[in-house]
Simulated scan of single mutants.
Amino acid sequence: MFAVLGTIEFTVAGGITGMEQTGSADWAEHARIQGKPLLEWIGEGLDEINLTIELHPLLGDPAERLRLLREAKSRHEPLALVMGSGEYIGPYVVTRVSNTIRRATAVGQVVASTVQVGLREYTGAFTRKVVRQGLLDPALGGASAIGSPGLLSSMVPIPSATQLAIGHAKSAGNVLRAGKSLYEAVKGGNPSMILGQVPQLLGVTARAIEPLQGLSTVAGLLDDGADLSRLGDDVLGNVMGSRSSLDPVDLSNIVDRFAASRESLDKAVTVMGSASKRLAGLAAEVLTRRA
C-alpha cells in the first residue's frame, strides 16, 4: 500500500509511479518610490500534490480506475490522504484529473494511459471518516516492523513473518512471469512497435518492486531467512536493471535496449524460480503450524 485517498487505494503494483508535493507561501509586493518593491508575508499557501499513475490491463481495469478518480473529483468533497506507513497527511480535494492515452484499440477503448491527479489541501471543517478499523500505528511492532504498512482490520490476525515472506515471494513470482510473457509477446515487433510498448514494459516491472522489497525485509527477520533476503535483493537488482535499460530510449537504440532489459528480466525470473523448493518448505511449516 503506497497511499489511500478516501477509499481509493494506490499501490506501486497498481501503477503509481510518482508523487510530487508542493508547498508555497503568499507574499504581497508593495511598490516603493526610487527603490525596489518591498515584500510582505501574508500567509502560507495551500499544499498541492500531483500523483502520476500508469493505467494498463495488467495493473487493473483502466476504465474502472479512471472512473473512480473522476467520481472523486465530481463529488467536490475533501478526502483523507493517508500514506501506507499510517502517516495522516490531511484532507485534500481532487482538483484535476488528466488522462494521456498511450495506446487504444481500433474502436477507441483505452489500453494504456498515464493519469495525472491533482490534489489540493483543504483547510475547512473536516471530519475524518475511518472506513476500516485498525489503522496501523507506526509506533507498534508487528506488521510495521516487518515492512507491511497499510490499513489493517482489527478483526484480522496479523500474519507471521513466514507467511508474509511467502506472500511477497508469490506476488513477485506472479508479476515476473507476467512480465516475461509480455516481453515474449513484444520481442518480435519492429522498433516502432517495441518503443510504443515501453510504458507497459515499465509498468509490469514496477509491480515487482514492492513485493520484492517486502520479501527482503521480512525474510531478514527470520532466523534462517538470510538466503531469501539476499535472493530478494538479487532479483530486485535484476528488475531495476531491466527498467534502467529502457530509460531513456528512442528509435535508434530501442532494439538493443530492449534486448538488455529482457535479459535482465530473464535473470530475475530464473533466480526467483530457484527458490521454489525453499518456499515450498516454508509453506509446509505454516501448514503444520510450525511457523
Rank of each mutant, 00 (worst) to 15 (best):
M1Q: 07
T7D: 11
E9H: 13
E9K: 12
F10I: 10
T17L: 14
G18T: 02
G18Y: 04
E20G: 02
Q21H: 15
G23I: 15
S24L: 08
A25S: 13
W27I: 15
A28I: 14
A28V: 13
H30C: 13
R32E: 12
R32K: 12
G35Y: 06
P37C: 04
L39E: 03
I42R: 15
G43N: 02
L46I: 04
I49Q: 03
N50H: 13
H56G: 05
P57S: 01
P62R: 00
A63Y: 11
R65M: 11
R67V: 04
R67C: 00
R70S: 01
R70K: 10
R70I: 03
A72I: 09
A72E: 10
R75A: 12
E77G: 00
L81F: 03
V82T: 11
G84V: 14
I89Y: 03
N99D: 15
T100R: 10
A104P: 04
Q109F: 03
V110Y: 00
V111I: 12
S113T: 06
T114I: 10
Q116L: 10
G118V: 00
L119Q: 02
R120F: 05
G124C: 01
A125G: 13
A125R: 14
T127E: 09
R132V: 13
L135Q: 15
D137S: 05
D137R: 12
G142V: 00
G142T: 00
S144D: 07
G147S: 05
G147K: 03
L152F: 12
S153D: 15
V156Q: 15
A161W: 07
L164D: 05
G167C: 04
H168N: 11
L176H: 06
Y183P: 06
E184P: 11
S192P: 06
V198L: 04
V204C: 05
T205P: 02
A206Q: 14
A206S: 14
R207P: 05
I209H: 06
I209M: 08
V218F: 00
D224A: 02
G225Y: 05
A226C: 01
N238T: 00
M240V: 08
M240S: 02
R243S: 01
R243T: 08
S245F: 03
S245V: 06
L246E: 08
P248V: 02
I254G: 12
V255S: 13
V255Q: 13
D256E: 14
D256L: 09
A259I: 04
A260P: 01
R262H: 06
L265P: 00
A268W: 02
V269I: 03
M272I: 11
R278K: 11
L279Q: 06
L279A: 06
A283S: 10
A283Q: 08
T288W: 10
T288D: 12
